[in-house]
Design a protein around this nucleic acid. Structure first.
Length: 480
RNA sequence: CGAGGUGUAGCGCAGUUUGGUAGCGCGUUUGGUUCGGGACCAAAAGGUCGCAGGUUCAAAUCCUGUCACCUCGACCA
């Protein structure tokens, strides 16, 4: 036994409880989601990681189309003059913009920004495309990558280049723009909860934390297992800020020239980081069945023995026909035990072990990744059984994450309380609305305001920081 | 951007103090035996020691510079 423990394997994960940060790095590299790129601050998303992104894309894109959006593609390069048009926006993004200054051997007359986000270029086009109220709304989305010159980076959570979707819409009235802003936040919430099993807290950002150039920013915030917050998606209402700067006007029904009301909303590959840090355990990833690239992996036991591989092939074919994402692990040089660990690391929700003993009994040994329990299940009815089991796992992951989150949200009535609460979770507190108090909290505890929930039922009447009359209920947490 | 740390075979590391033929484990390849929780035996392949200078008869080792990555802080999806 001792000998077994001494054995060194390449695949070794730092215990999550010991060092969460190192655990994260170990898991993402060993599960082959990503690798570091030869470029500073950039990551390579490997096939298994990209497959997760494709699942997220499918679920989001479907809902974008259902809510009346169309996909477009805008250029990656933005002329400097365009980027400079909205003052707050420039100020917010300028420090992290990468510039193209040369084409071939020629120095460019005007340097080109590699998009850190595409508001400006959408605006330039919208001003060209809109003339009448009949043209509105215009609701476009693009899937692309953006580049921000980040100082410190971590795969999925913050990288210089990252994949995302950015929706940009223009509307006739402020009401429609606000409705759109909320609708898309709700789409994000639904995808997070129903597909990724991420319980999120939705609300409005403080002025300090809102998007550069926005009138109002709303976010969904997820809690990681170290109690830190991850902003998992944002939706902004720009009012007419950009419309004025870019002169996006239309002739209204009343025959008046009016500015459009604009929104934008984005979610990125950071969501993959959220899944990992919400559901992962000591053995590695635990992927929610709905976004898992492989839902069921079949591991043959004693594959060389008569009938085993044939039976595995047959089961795989039946499950594929039934619509499951199935993988048969037919690698012939690895022992079953190795494969068990490998697929657990990769977070596959269900594993079927099929060996001579199972076949004698007409069953498969079914392992579920969420609880790590094994049970025999009849082969005849596997497609039906697995459908229910996957759904149960999906729900269980959500319940576990929600229980963890709720157990780590605590009301703070003083700065002392707040400071100790944000060491292990989110603090819910009353706030006077002053920037100075937000700054003071940050200074003292290193936590930032996350958002103000839509349910503003007060937990007190005094600001947690200054003691003056409180205006808002707000969450504070250390953030990624 | 501030503090600390690490760069040696695909991965994890030893060797650096005190300069003298490049090492170990895992993985990989081939053959065989195995196969119900990280199998075993045998043989083999694989390294300009991050990069650039310098000192020396001789540098992974000493000196100077530089780059990259990691951890913790400050700033941001």
């Amino acid at each position: 036994m001792a000998k077994q423990e001494e054995k060194k394997f390449v695949e070794h994960i730092t215990p999550r409880s010991e060092d969460f940060s190192q655990w994260y790095t170990d898991v993402i590299l060993q599960s082959e989601l990503v690798d570091y790129a030869p470029v500073r601050g950039c990551m390579v998303i490997r096939p298994y990681g990209y497959a997760i992104w494709e699942r997220i894309q499918q679920e989001m894109d479907r809902r974008f189309k259902e809510t009346g959006h169309q996909n477009v593609y805008m250029p990656m390069l933005i002329p400097e003059s365009l980027l400079l048009k909205e003052a707050e926006h420039v100020e917010g993004f300028a420090p992290e913009v990468a510039w193209v200054t040369q084409g071939g051997n020629e120095k460019l007359q005007e340097r080109l920004a590699i998009r850190p986000t595409s508001e400006t270029i959408f605006c330039a086009m919208y001003s060209k495309w809109v003339g009448s109220w009949r043209d509105l709304p215009m609701k476009y989305n693009q899937w692309c990558s953006v580049l921000r010159w980040e100082k410190s980076t971590r795969p999925f959570l913050r990288t210089s280049e990252f994949l995302w979707q950015e929706g940009h819409t223009i509307h006739e009235t402020p009401e429609e723009a606000q409705e759109e802003t909320m609708r898309m936040l709700e789409v994000y919430r639904e995808v997070a909860q129903d597909e990724m099993a991420l319980p999120v807290l939705c609300g409005r950002k403080s002025d300090k934390e809102k998007f550069a150039g926005a009138q109002a920013t709303y976010s969904m915030e997820a809690m990681m297992q170290d109690g830190k917050a991850l902003q998992a998606g944002t939706s902004h209402n720009f009012g007419t800020n950009f419309a004025v700067a870019f002169n996006i006007q239309f002739l209204s029904k009343a025959g008046k020239l009016e500015y459009v009301h604009e929104t934008s909303w984005g979610a990125s590959t950071r969501l993959i980081g959220a899944i990992i840090m919400t559901h992962g355990d000591e053995r590695g990833l635990r992927l929610p069945p709905r976004i898992a690239p492989i839902q069921v992996v079949i591991v043959p036991v004693a594959a060389h023995k008569g009938g085993v591989m044939e039976a595995c092939d047959a089961v795989a074919a039946r499950l594929k026909d039934a619509g499951f994402r199935v993988k048969l692990d037919d690698r012939d040089t690895l022992s079953p035990g190795y494969k068990f660990n490998d697929w657990e690391l990769k977070g596959v929700p269900v594993r079927l072990e099929i060996g001579p003993r199972d076949l004698e009994n007409g069953v498969a040994t079914v392992f579920r990744r969420d609880t790590c329990e094994k049970a025999p299940m009849p082969l005849d009815t596997l497609p039906q059984t697995l459908g229910g089991l996957l759904e149960e796992i999906q729900q269980n992951l959500l319940v576990q994450a929600r229980e963890f989150r709720d157990a780590h949200i605590t009301d703070a009535h003083s700065m002392d309380e707040l400071a100790s609460i944000v060491e292990t979770g989110f603090a819910r507190a009353m706030w006077c609305g002053d920037r100075a108090c937000e700054d003071a909290v940050k200074e003292r505890t290193n936590a930032s305001s996350r958002n103000m929930p839509f349910d503003q039922t007060p937990i007190g009447d005094r600001c947690v920081c200054c003691g003056k009359p409180a205006k808002n209920l707000i969450y504070f947490a250390k953030a990624y």
